[in-house]
Structures are given as C-alpha cells and as structure tokens.
Design a protein around this nucleic acid. Sequence first.
DNA 1: GTCTATATCCAGATAGAC
DNA 2: GTCTATCTGGATATAGAC
Lengths: 209, 209
Amino acid sequence: MARNKEQNEKMREERKQQIRSGALRQFATKGLFATKIKDIADAVGMAQGLVYHYYKSKDEIYVELIKNALNKMNEAVISLKEMSLPPHEKIRLAIEQLLKTIDTSDDFIQTCRLIAHATSSTAIPEEAKKLIQEKRDLPYQEVAKIMAQGQEEGTIIEADPNELAIVFWTSINGLAIYKATRQDSTAIPDARILINMFMERTGEKSCRV
Amino acid sequence: MARNKEQNEKMREERKQQIRSGALRQFATKGLFATKIKDIADAVGMAQGLVYHYYKSKDEIYVELIKNALNKMNEAVISLKEMSLPPHEKIRLAIEQLLKTIDTSDDFIQTCRLIAHATSSTAIPEEAKKLIQEKRDLPYQEVAKIMAQGQEEGTIIEADPNELAIVFWTSINGLAIYKATRQDSTAIPDARILINMFMERTGEKSCRV
DNA sequence: GTCTATATCCAGATAGAC
DNA sequence: GTCTATCTGGATATAGAC
C-alpha cells in the first residue's frame, strides 16, 4: 500500500512535469494569454479537461514555471559567485557559458523567453509579479559585486559597477531574445566582443582576450 | 461641401490617431491578447463599440502600429547612414542618442516594447509577421556596414561586422526592455561603456580582439 | 459620431461516465 | 486517470437608437 502510494505520487509528479514542459514552450512562444489550455493539453497529448486533474488553473501552471525559471537563474548566479576564480575570470567564464548555453540549449532559450514575456507584461498573475519583484535583482547585485572586486584588482574597467551589471545582463538577455526569434541557423556572436567590453586594458597585460 | 469633406477626413484621422496612441500603450504593456478592445476604448475615453467605427478589428490596429514602429526604426537608421561622419563617430552618436532616447522618451520605450512583444511571440496576425520579416533586418545590415567601414579605417575593433551589429542592437534592445520594466527612477548606464566595446584602442595598439 | 444593447463565439473550468 | 460533455463568463464584433 505504501509502495503504491509512493508510486502514485511519483507518477503524478512525472505527469505534472510533462505538463510544465509542454506549457513552458507554449508560454515562451506565445505568452500567457495567447496560450490556451487546449494548446498545452495538445502538446502533452492529453485531453483538455485532464490538465485540471493536475493543476487547478492556467495561472497556477504559469506561476510554477516562473518560479522555477527564476530559481534556476539565481542558482546559477550563486554558483558563479562561489567559484574560486579572480573576478575578471568569473565574468569571462560567465559570458562564455551563457552565450554557449544560448546557442545550444533550447530549454534555456525557452526559459529566457518566458521570463522576458513575464517581466515585460503587466498582464500576469499577481503571484508571478511578486516572485519577479523578489528575485530579479539578485543577478544584478551579484554581478555588480564581482565587477567591483575586479576594479579593485585593476582588471575590470572603471565605471559604476551597477551600470556594468546592467549592461552585462541586458546584453545577454537581448542576445537570448534575438536568438529565440530567429529559429534558423543564426550564430551567436563571438563571446570576446562582450568580454572585451568589461576588461581593463593595462599596458602589456592587455591582450588577454 | 469639399471643405466639409476635408475637415471630416482630418477629424477622422485625428480620432484614429488617438486610438492608435491609446492602443500602443496597451499593447506595449500587455501584449496583443491580454489587451481588450475595452482597454483601448477606455484609454481613449470612448465607448467600446465606437472603436469599430474607426478600425474593423483589433488586429487591424495592431498591424498598423507594428508598421509604424518598424518604419520609424528604419527611417532612423537610414538617416544615420546618410550622415557625413566617420564610421566610429556614427556608432558613438547612435549609442548616445539611443540611450538618451531610451532614458527620456516614453513613446520610444513603448515602441520598443511593442516590437519586442511582436518579435518574440508567434501569436500575432500573419500580416504583422510578414512586416517584421521584411523590415527587421535593415538596421542590422546598415550597422554592419558602418562597422566594416570603421574597421577599414582602423577605428572599430576587428571582429565579424555582422556579429558586431548583432551585439550593438541586442544590447540596445536589452536596455530598452530593462528600462521599460522598471518604471521607477532607474538610470540608464553611461553610454561610454557600450561605445567602448566597439572602439579600437589605437594608443598602444595592444588589444585587438 | 456616439452610445447602449446584444448576437455570437470561444475558452476556462467543472461534472460525471468509463 | 482519462475522457466527453457542458456550464459559464467574458470578449469581439454588430445592430440599431439617438
């Protein structure tokens, strides 16, 4: 009996995951309002009504996806912060990895699009707004700290660290959206162009790009 | 009689402009689907049904706004192209002006948001898709040309001009979206951070990407 | 030109059979 | 758990009075 209960729980969670997975793609490409429950059900291959056996509303699915997306982003930032690398190497690594992920991971792109839609629309559930409000600043803050550390070491250019962090993330975000809207074989630019923007060029040490 | 006809035409066009103006703000903040005709009518201060006296559908308003937005962008790029300035000065000027406009012009921000929503959603009218397809590449092409010219003169860093153009526009776009989603007193970063990214540093000649 | 009222449709959510 | 059928609300678009 206990066995069965656990099994059932697991099956149920798997099914929910399927729904989230289908919903992510739909929300990411069409936004919350243009996505119909039917679209999600079709994507998963289940009847429209069955979705409500797992989630009690469209908004609930949406909020859960937003929560996951924001958490994923923040976790990545935390792990960057905790790496034992000099600040400018963290920035370099982050840009390289992010661009690579943009170029290769479809799931990452969908997640970026979801967040882009969510942050740029006022027509989302209150709970989603609250989550965004709470969690969107951490990446900016952490990158700003790293920039400031790099400036102390003379490896990052002199400018307001907060502004550098804004440029950092908005550039990445802009590229992710660009990529998302050109499903064809569009290549992502060379990471060095972006990296170069933040690196201090000191005499000989300059050409580390 | 002819007088009256002209007058009427003019009044009608003014009224349509009011509708477009209200609709732009609604579409920009909520997207096409989440925006109800009632929202637009309310924004203009007219009855819901009256909107249909001027436009025959919500989609028609949307398509007209997309058309205007794309044309405005392309005209700005053409005028940049036709300026008699050295290439790197064009880039500098463009970045300065764009950031300033992002910082001060609410209409420009709304336009950016509208385009961002439109390009990142597949759930828009076919005609809007076609327009975007036709017109979105010109800004990239023109900036790529300017970058290439600057490289010949040794004032722009060495890298694929197309990639430089992509970084250029996606950075601007990312910033516009950032600004749009923080209506509070968020300042836009110093233009020199972005300008710096594209400029060849002739001093030591050291750092070439 | 402007409004109110309404026909029509569509989609979210529920009920109930299997 | 899964489906089909249905209730219900809300939004587009139209009709018709003023």
